[in-house]
Amino acid sequence: MPLPEAEICLTVNGQVVRKRVEPRQHLVDFLREALDLTGSHLGCEHGVCGACTVRVDGRIVRGCLMLAVQADGRSVETIEGVSDSGELADLQHAFHQRNALQCGFCTPGMLLCAGELLATSPSATREEIREHISGNYCRCTGYQAIVDAIETTLASRRATAGASEA
């Protein structure tokens, strides 16, 4: 019996992509295997670790808990896309300076997760930062450096916003 296939057309990092996929393929496998976008990682494949976090239509989702076919017609952004656009350059710089990563496996997911907080909660407290990233597993850092880096970026964005308003 031939395996079912479906054609999907979606935007990935700004580029329109048309592919045939097996319906059972989840979004991260599609990004990694069909598009070679290997920056999104498979950590648990059951929605707990957050290493596969990507953006769909502007919101972060677990890439392992969404099928590629469900992304048909949607806009997907990955760490490669946001790195190239420079959208999270300040956050990435803060992570680097603060050594908020070690093995780096959780980092793309962590950055995208934190990026949503930067966009939606410009005055988030440390506690709120911890809450927001509480679904992203990091085994190396102990999280504090990550919280520091996000806090620093929030502060610098507020300062920039304040300056531009003034």
Binding site: R32, D36, L37, T38, G39, S40, H41, L42, T78, I79, E80, S83, Q92, F95, H96, Q97, N99, L101, C103, G104, F105, T107, P108, L111
Partner: peptide, 21 residues
Amino acid sequence: DPRPNAKRLLQGRGVYIDDLR
């Protein structure tokens, strides 16, 4: 000093075994 080799990891450009083709 921050780690020079961390920059690629921050852009999702690290290479883990599963990333090899």
